[in-house]
Design a protein around this nucleic acid. Structure first.
Lengths: 116, 116
DNA sequence: TCGCCAGATGTAGAAGATCAAGGTATATCC
DNA sequence: GGATATACCTTGATCTTCTACATCTGGCGA
């Protein structure tokens, strides 16, 4: 089945934001992050594992996330991530940028361009 | 490399949309498209030429745009683009997708996630 | 007990888009 | 003649995402 009508590929950059936002609510492991995003969006956003884990490593490398191993709810070891203070700042700034950017794009896409 | 405070890198995919939207108002050449986008956004969105021309060729290759040479307002030859009917349909659909996607992302970024 | 599935992590390779930085040429104005 | 703005284009690097695969563990049913 090709991607159905109600699934999206994420544009570059948005995945990091979504991950950080979910992590902002408290320590959580990678697998659960993907589930959470899918769940909130009612399956419209699906995070592939091949995107998820590199993104987590990237964010940790940039010191926006920190991680430690801990048993998960199921008893198995899992790597729990949380935001660093740098990550928290970054999330705030980039969320604001995302909003400004998408507002601008929407303005152009939906505007009449009259009066220009 | 840093971007200044009020400039954005465009997430993948949005450039094509912006271009098609500007072209939708009537035949226009590449150089003017970039100026137009920059102007409407009050310099917040700047389209690099290294992004612009490949995008135009991409869209023409996909038969979403058609082009022909014509003298521009300044008397010089320039390549004027317009939407094909396929392009017009595509623009409508993708604009809708863009809106749904960004609404979803905003939902997660700005929501409290309570009640999940 | 054996096998399978779900949870959980990860990597490799390809595809695609953007950007930075360069190049070419023409028209106009000083 | 020289500078500037217009107008086109390409190349190479970088980054992100996707598909697809690989690995390990624990629990469950047959």
């Amino acid at each position: 089945m090709k991607k159905t009508d109600d699934r999206f590929d994420l544009p570059q950059g948005t995945l990091d934001l979504l991950i950080m936002r979910v992590v902002a609510f408290g320590p959580i492991h990678g697998y659960a992050i993907a589930q959470r995003i899918q769940q909130i969006s009612r399956d419209a956003l699906q995070v592939q594992q091949g995107s998820l884990y590199p993104a987590l490593h990237r964010l940790e490398y940039k010191k926006l996330l920190s991680s430690r191993w801990k048993p998960s709810e199921t008893g198995r070891e899992a790597k729990f991530y949380e935001l660093t203070s740098k990550g928290r700042t970054h999330l705030t700034v980039e969320t604001e940028n995302w909003t400004r950017l998408t507002d601008l794009v929407s303005l152009i896409l939906e505007g009449t361009l009259e009066g220009i």
